[in-house]
Design a binder for these strands. Structure first.
Length: 369
DNA sequence: TAACCGTGGCA
DNA sequence: TTGCCAAGGTT
């Protein structure tokens, strides 16, 4: 870490800072489901769910997930299909596929006990530097840094660190700072308190400095520059992709669904058949019909459009034209291609955009009846 | 290093 | 409406 930050820390009363921070956390912390016990598995599940995801969003997912898979054994033995179904709508689906793979490794390699060293725990799928530190400190009381976006924002202000927190390498600077600041008496509360402070007081815009328990220790507050920190470069716009999709029924009223590949966007989720549209040709129905024939061997009639859907991801935006249609021939089903009754669809995990497609399909049926 | 990987809420 | 975000990890 640079000399400037070191000098700022050396001027701090670290014991006083720890006490002000931790006593505030003991007083003001939110009562969250995963704070009721220190089961390393439950801490683990909560930390994976909370990656890039708001607390209020996670709470119901966490409760359902622990109810369905209360132990490492339960998750290790579950079908991936059922695991994805519980995760449906939470996003970043590789998180839960990695979690299940890692839980199986804990069973086989570590006798079912979550390891308690950074090296071992960080070697598990889906556990990076932040999550390793979070599990170690919260579940095992090990004084390891757990540097997330909150911690970088809070400490960038307290220590006036002007490094770009969008850069991956910057995290190491904050980890060094935490190693110098962390309470060895209560590493769990120290780390959680930094994050809680970031979530409740030291917010990205308009931080509530007058309510802050550690404002006396905050260099940015003293200089009046808290609104200028942290430094974070902008990310670029996602690109647009035009798709055409179809909710297709056969003569028995069954609906055609397809399982996405096991890597990449929305891996292993189910979808209604769809293809990217070449805008220079701009005949949706014809391109869709040709795709269905070549990809699935399906002879189809694409009928009227039933809606349009925009699906915004981090790096791409799907603009989907949705049609209804009919399958004319007998299709050979396999692991990735299934004809299922409408009532059966709820057992498959779909991305949000495809859930909306089925809603549009039901609405279009209501109109024609 | 930067791109990839979801979703919903909010200013 | 648009951009930005929210307890990151993998490639």
């Amino acid at each position: 870490m640079s000399k400037i930050h070191l000098e700022t820390i050396e001027k701090m009363d670290i014991k006083s800072f720890q006490q002000d921070l931790i006593s505030w956390f003991e007083r003001e912390q939110r009562n969250l489901p995963w704070r009721n016990e220190r089961d390393p598995y439950k801490v683990w599940v909560s930390e994976i769910m909370l990656q890039q995801t708001r607390v209020e969003t996670v709470i119901p997912y966490y409760n359902r997930f622990i109810e369905q898979f209360p132990t490492i054994d339960a998750l290790a033995e579950a079908d991936e299909e059922k695991v994805l179904k519980v995760w449906e709508g939470l996003g970043y689906y590789s998180r839960v596929r990695n979690l299940q793979e890692a839980v199986r490794e804990v069973k086989e390699v570590y006798g079912g006990k979550v390891p308690d060293t950074r090296e071992e725990i960080a070697s598990l799928k889906g556990i990076g530097p932040y999550t390793a530190g979070a599990i170690l400190s919260i579940a095992y009381g090990v004084p390891e840094p757990a540097v997330d976006g909150n911690v970088m924002r809070v400490l960038s202000r307290i220590l006036t660190i002007w490094e770009d927190i969008a850069r991956q390498a910057t995290r190491k600077i904050f980890e060094e700072a935490v190693r110098m600041l962390i309470s060895h008496q209560n590493p769990s509360y120290f780390n959680q308190a930094l994050m809680e402070l970031g979530a409740m007081i030291c917010t990205p815009t308009s931080p509530s400095c007058l309510l802050c328990p550690v404002r006396e220790h905050c260099q940015a507050f003293h200089e009046g520059v808290q609104e200028n920190l942290p430094v974070k470069t902008k990310k670029k716009k996602p690109k647009n992709v035009q798709l055409a999709a179809a909710v297709l029924t056969d003569q028995d009223g069954n609906i055609l669904i397809h399982k996405r590949p096991s890597s990449g966007l929305l891996a292993n989720l189910w979808e209604f058949p769809n293809t990217e549209i070449n805008l220079t040709i701009k005949n949706d129905k014809q391109q869709l019909s040709q795709f269905l024939k070549s990809e699935y061997g399906a002879d189809t009639i694409i009928r009227e459009p039933i809606g349009q859907i925009e699906h915004v991801f981090s790096h791409v935006v799907w603009n989907i034209n949705v049609y209804k249609g009919t399958i004319l021939n007998n299709l050979k089903q396999n692991n990735d291609l299934r004809l299922v009754s409408p009532d059966h669809l709820k057992e498959f995990a779909f991305p949000v955009s495809h859930q909306k497609m089925f809603m549009q399909f039901l609405e279009s049926k209501g109109k024609t009846l």
